[in-house]
Design a protein around this nucleic acid. Structure first.
Length: 877
RNA sequence: GGACUCAUGGCUCAGUUGGUUAGAGCGUCGCCCUCACAUGGCGAAGGUCGAAGGUUCAAAUCCUUCUGAGUCCACCA
C-alpha cells in the first residue's frame, strides 16, 4: 500500500463522499447500548448558496459531531432546509418579473406550483454544497420545513397555542413592508440609523387663525391622518390650550389638543401630532382618548383617498409635495437635521411603514418565563457567556409576535371563516366544519384565512418537528432533548430564543443543553462578506483550489471572535494537509510488511527507545489537551495543539530522529502507532485526507469516521522521557544555532565538545551521540567532564551542559565575546529582579510557598549559568 | 438612549483561576532543493501587552476613568 507522490484533494474528496454515502456511514438510529448525541443544524434557506458563514457553521458542527461519534455516541445530525417564505417568494417573483408577469397574474395556485417546481429543481443546491464540505449529516433524513409531516406539526402548534389563549387576532400597528406587501415581526424590521430631518409645522387654531401650535415631525406625510395634537399635561406653555381645536393644514380637518403623559416636553416643541393609524405610540394615545383612526396609505405605500389631493402619490413623493405646499402657505416653520433609526425590511431593505392592520399574534410573555429561567439557571448554557445577557434582556422585554404574513409561500394559517366572519381554528377544513356546523348549521361554507405564517413559526419547532412530533415515536424519545446548537448571533432572537420557548411549551423540556454562538466571517478589512460588496470568497472555489480540508482547517484556526479571512489564509490548511500526506508517505515507505500487518496498537513499553517513549508521551499530552479544548468548544485551540504536535514534534523531530534506525521493527511500530492515532486526532478537522491515509493501513476499522477516539495508555506514558528528550533537543538546537550564527554551510561538518559533570546527563548525551551528530551535522564529538581550553570557539549552555564548538578561521572572536556578554547581562538582569523579590519581606510573607521556592530555584540556576558563562568568557581571552 | 465586545511585535490571533525571561502562524531577514514534503528544512530579528490611575508581595490578566474600533437592542414624534 502506497500513497501517491502528490496529494490530490479533489480525488480524495470525491472518493470518500461516495464511500460515506454508499455505506450510509452517518446514519443514526436509536440504540439502547449507546448514548445519543444530537446536534441541531440551523437549516439554511432553501434559496441559499453556500457562503463562508455556512462553511464555518457547518465545520464547527462537524468537528463536534465527528468527535462525539468517535467517542462512541450515537450521533444524529439531521440536515435540512428552511422554506424561507419571503426570500423564496421573492426569488420566484423576480423570475416571473422577467417574463413580465406578477404572482397575481398567475393566481395563488399556479404561483405555488411554480414555487414547488423551483424548490424541486434548486432546493437541494445548498444541501449538496454542505455535503461537499464534509459535513457528516444523516443525509437520507434530510428535512424541509414544508414537508407534510412538518406541516402537521406547525398546524398542531398553532391550534394548541390558540386553545391555550396564546394566539389571538388583533388590529394593531405592525411593521409593514410596502414592497413585499406583508406584515413583519419586530425582529424582521432592522433599525438603521439615518440622517433625516425634523420638520416644524404650524397648526393654526380654529378660534384664531393667526395663532398656531408648532409640532415637530420626521414624517410629514402622515399628517394627512392626524386626528389630534398632544401635549404633556404638566407643560405650562400649552396648559391653556388643552381642549382647543386646531385646523389641520392642507386637509382642513378640525382636531383637538389633548393632554397625554407620553409626550416629552423637552423634545421638539413639546407638542406632537397624533396619527393613530401610522404610529404605534399615537395608536395607543388614540385608544386612550378615543380618537378617530384614519389610514391614509395603500398597502403599497401610496396615499389613498383619505389623502385628498395627494391621493395616488408614493409616500416619499407625497412628503416632498406636502413640504412644498406647507412652505407656500408659510406653515413650515423650519427644518432641522435629525438622526433617527428607521426600520427596514430584512429581506428587501425597503423602509418599513408602521401600518394599522389585522394580524395574528402570539402572546410571548407566558412563553418567555420558562425560557428565561432555563438560561438563568444554566439549564441551557450559552457560550460565550456574554450572550446570556443579550438573551435575557430580549426575553425580559419581549413583545407579542406578529405571525401572519400576506404572502403565499408558507404554511397557510389554519383558520377558517364562515359567511358571518366567525373564525374556526382547526388542523383541517373538516375539523373546522365540524366546529362551524354546531352553531351555523350543516350548510355553512368556510373559507380559509388567506395569510401564511411567519417562517420562524415553523423554524422554532425544528428540534422536535424533525423528529416526528407531534406523533410519539422512538426517534423523538431517544434523540430529544438534543445536545448542542451552534449558530451565528444574527438569529439568536429569530430562532434560538424561540426554539427554547417552543421546546418547553410543546415538549415540556429544553430543546438543547448548549448553545454556541460563533462569530461572523469577515474579509481582511473586517467588513461582512456579502455579494453586494463583492468581497465574498466562495467556499466552493476554495474547495476546488485548496480542498475541503484546507478550507475547514484554515477557517477554524482563524476563528477568534469574528473571523477575518482572505484567500491566502487557506494556504495554511493546504500546506498542512500536504504535510500530513508526505509524513505518511515517509512512514509507509519505511515500514515493513511485518510492521504494517502487525499489532502496533499494543506496544510493549520495554521495547521502546527514548525517542519513542518521548513521542508517545507527547502524543498523550496532546490528546488530553485536545479533548479538553473540544469539550470547551475551543476548536481553534485544539487545531493549534494537533498541528504543533504533528508537525513540530512528530515530523520535525521524531521522524528525523528515527530515519537512521527505521529498520527496527519497534521503531516502525511506534511510527505507525503515532501516525494512526494522529490521524484520529486530526480527523474531525480534516476528514478527507485522514480517511484516505487511514484506508492504507492494514489493521484498521471500516473507516476512520467510525473508528474509536484514542485513550491515553498509562502503561506507555512516561513523563521522564519527555524531560530527557528535551535536553537532547536543546543540545541539537544550540549547536544549530551556533552554525547559523557563524554561517557554517550545511555541507561543512564541525567538531563539538560537550562538557558535562553529571553522570546521568553524560549517559543521556552518550546514548544519543549518533543522533546529535547527525542532526547537528557534526564531524566529531567529544564528551568530557571539564571544559578543554580551546581558543576560537563558540559556546552555548544547555542547563548544566556546556557546548564548545571550535570554529577556527570562521569565528570572529570579538563578536562571540560580545554575544556572550550580552547573554550574561540579560541573565544578570533577571537575577536582579529575582533577588529584589526574594529580599522583599512582603513577598516572603505573602506569596505562596511554592512560588517562593520556584523563584529561589530559578535564581540558583541563573547564578550557576552566569558563573559558567563568565568562566567561558575568561577562557576566550 | 441602553447593553455588549475588542484594543498584545508589520499583519491575524493565543495567553485558562493574577505568579519565572508574554506565545503561535503569516510577513520580514539569513542559510539550505539533505533521497516524505520548497505547499519543505534550519536559524534570526521584532512586542512590556491602547492611555492614565488604583487594588496586590506580584497584573497583559482584577477595578475605575478616558481614547479609539465594532456589534446588538430601543415606540420620544
Amino acid at each position: 500500500m502506497e500513497l501517491s507522490s502528490k496529494y490530490n484533494p479533489q480525488e480524495t474528496q470525491d472518493k470518500w463522499l461516495q464511500f460515506w454515502k454508499d455505506e450510509n456511514i452517518f446514519h443514526a438510529k436509536p440504540d439502547a447500548d449507546k448514548k445519543p448525541f444530537t446536534i441541531v443544524i440551523p437549516p439554511p434557506n432553501v434559496t441559499g448558496i453556500l457562503h463562508m458563514g455556512h462553511a464555518l457553521n457547518n465545520t464547527l458542527q462537524d468537528i463536534l459531531v465527528r468527535y462525539k461519534r468517535m467517542n462512541g455516541f450515537e450521533v444524529l445530525w439531521m440536515p435540512g432546509t428552511d422554506h424561507a417564505g419571503i426570500a423564496t417568494q421573492n426569488v420566484v417573483e423576480k423570475q416571473l418579473a422577467k417574463e413580465g408577469r406578477t404572482r397575481q397574474d398567475l393566481g395563488r395556485e399556479e404561483f405555488l406550483k411554480r414555487l414547488w417546481s423551483w424548490k424541486k429543481e434548486y432546493g437541494d443546491t445548498i444541501i449538496h454544497q454542505l455535503e461537499r464540505l464534509g459535513s457528516s449529516c444523516d443525509w437520507p433524513r434530510v428535512r424541509f420545513t414544508m414537508d407534510d409531516a412538518y406541516s402537521e406539526a406547525v398546524k398542531h402548534a398553532f391550534v394548541s397555542l390558540h386553545q391555550k389563549g396564546l394566539i389571538y387576532q388583533g388590529k394593531r400597528i405592525i411593521n409593514w413592508c410596502p414592497r413585499c406587501q406583508t406584515a413583519l415581526s419586530d425582529e424582521e424590521a432592522e433599525h438603521k440609523e439615518k440622517n433625516g430631518k425634523l420638520y416644524y409645522i404650524k397648526y393654526p387654531l380654529k378660534d384664531n387663525p393667526n395663532a398656531w401650535v408648532v409640532v415637530a415631525t420626521t414624517r410629514p406625510e402622515t399628517m394627512l391622518g392626524d386626528t389630534a395634537v398632544a401635549v404633556n399635561p404638566q407643560d405650562e406653555r400649552y396648559r391653556l390650550l388643552i381642549g382647543k381645536t386646531l385646523i389641520l393644514p392642507l386637509v382642513d380637518r378640525e382636531i383637538k389638543i389633548i393632554a397625554d403623559d407620553f409626550v416629552a416636553s423637552d423634545f421638539g416643541t413639546g407638542a406632537v401630532k397624533v396619527t393613530p393609524a401610522h404610529d404605534p405610540n399615537d395608536f395607543m394615545m388614540g385608544e386612550r382618548h378615543q380618537l378617530t383612526v384614519i389610514n391614509v396609505m395603500h398597502p403599497d405605500g401610496r396615499i389613498n383617498k383619505e389623502g385628498g389631493a395627494y391621493e395616488g402619490l408614493d409616500r416619499f413623493e407625497a412628503r416632498k409635495r406636502i413640504l412644498v405646499d406647507l412652505e407656500e402657505r408659510g406653515l413650515l416653520e423650519k427644518e432641522e437635521d435629525h438622526k433617527n433609526a428607521v426600520g427596514h425590511c430584512y429581506r428587501c431593505d425597503t423602509m418599513v411603514e408602521p401600518y394599522l392592520s389585522k394580524q395574528w399574534f402570539v402572546k410571548m410573555k407566558p412563553l418567555a418565563n420558562r425560557a428565561l429561567e432555563a438560561v438563568k439557571s444554566q439549564e441551557i448554557k450559552i457560550h460565550p457567556t456574554r450572550w446570556i445577557k443579550v438573551y435575557t434582556n430580549w426575553m425580559e422585554d419581549i413583545h407579542d409576535w406578529c405571525i401572519s404574513r400576506q404572502i403565499w409561500w408558507g404554511h397557510r394559517i389554519p383558520v377558517w371563516y364562515d359567511e358571518n366572519g366567525n373564525a374556526y381554528v382547526a388542523k383541517s377544513q373538516e375539523e373546522a366544519y365540524l366546529q362551524a356546523k354546531v352553531t351555523q348549521g350543516a350548510n355553512v361554507s368556510l373559507t380559509q384565512d388567506e395569510d401564511v405564517l411567519d417562517t420562524w413559526f415553523s423554524s422554532w419547532l425544528w428540534p422536535f418537528a424533525t423528529l416526528g412530533w407531534p406523533k410519539d415515536n422512538l426517534d423523538l424519545k431517544y434523540f430529544y432533548p438534543t445536545n448542542t446548537l451552534m449558530t451565528a448571533s444574527e438569529i439568536l432572537f429569530f430562532w434560538v430564543a424561540r426554539m427554547v420557548m417552543a421546546g418547553f411549551e410543546f415538549m415540556g423540556q429544553k430543546p438543547f443543553s448548549d448553545v454556541l454562538i460563533h462569530g461572523t466571517v469577515r474579509d481582511a478589512k473586517g467588513r461582512k462578506m456579502s455579494k453586494s460588496l463583492g468581497n465574498a470568497i466562495d467556499p466552493l472555489e476554495i474547495i476546488h483550489e485548496y480542498g475541503a480540508d484546507a478550507l475547514r482547517f484554515s477557517l477554524i484556526i482563524n476563528s477568534g471572535q469574528d473571523i477575518f479571512i482572505s484567500k491566502e489564509k487557506f494556504e495554511i490548511g493546504r500546506n498542512f494537509a500536504n504535510k500530513i500526506w508526505n509524513a505518511s508517505r515517509l512512514v509507509f515507505m519505511n515500514c515493513s510488511k511485518e510492521a504494517m500487518e502487525g499489532d502496533y496498537e499494543n506496544l510493549e513499553f520495554q521495547n521502546l527507545d527514548l525517542h519513542s517513549r518521548w513521542i508517545i508521551a507527547r502524543f498523550y499530552e496532546t490528546l488530553i489537551r485536545v479533548n479538553a479544548s473540544i469539550e470547551a468548544f475551543h476548536y481553534s485551540e485544539a487545531e493549534v495543539l494537533v498541528q504543533d504536535f504533528f508537525w513540530g514534534d512528530y515530523c520535525d523531530w521524531y521522524l528525523e530522529l528515527i530515519k537512521a534506525k527505521f529498520t527496527d521493527i519497534h521503531i516502525q511500530k511506534t511510527a505507525l502507532f503515532i501516525l494512526k492515532n494522529s490521524l484520529k486526532l486530526l480527523h474531525p478537522f480534516m476528514p478527507f485526507v485522514t480517511e484516505e491515509i487511514y484506508s492504507k493501513l492494514q489493521t484498521r476499522d471500516q473507516c476512520l469516521s467510525l473508528s474509536a477516539w484514542p485513550v491515553r495508555s498509562e502503561k506507555l506514558f512516561c513523563s521522564q522521557a519527555a524531560f530527557q528528550m528535551q535536553t537532547v533537543i536543546d543540545i541539537i538546537t544550540a549547536i544549530r544555532n551556533i552554525r547559523a550564527q557563524w554561517n557554517v554551510k550545511p555541507g561543512e561538518s564541525v567538531d563539538v565538545c560537550i562538557v558535562c559533570a553529571d553522570t546521568l546527563l553524560t549517559d543521556l548525551v552518550a546514548q544519543n551521540k549518533g543522533d546529535i551528530k547527525r542532526l547537528a551535522r557534526l564531524k566529531d564529538f567529544v564528551l568530557d567532564t571539564k571544559a578543554p581550553v580551546l581558543k576560537n570557539s563558540a559556546f552555548a549552555l544547555v542547563g548544566e551542559i556546556k557546548i564548545v564548538v571550535p570554529l577556527d578561521g570562521i569565528i570572529d572572536i570579538n563578536a562571540e565575546k560580545n554575544r556572550m556578554m550580552s547573554e550574561t547581562a540579560q541573565k544578570k538582569k533577571a537575577m536582579e529582579g529575582l533577588n529584589s523579590r526574594l529580599h522583599n519581606a512582603d513577598f516572603i510573607a505573602r506569596a505562596p510557598e511554592e512560588i517562593i521556592q520556584k523563584e529561589k530555584e530559578r535564581l540558583e540556576t541563573l547564578t550557576k549559568e552566569v558563573k559558567e558563562l563568565e568562566a567561558l568568557l575568561a577562557n576566550l581571552t
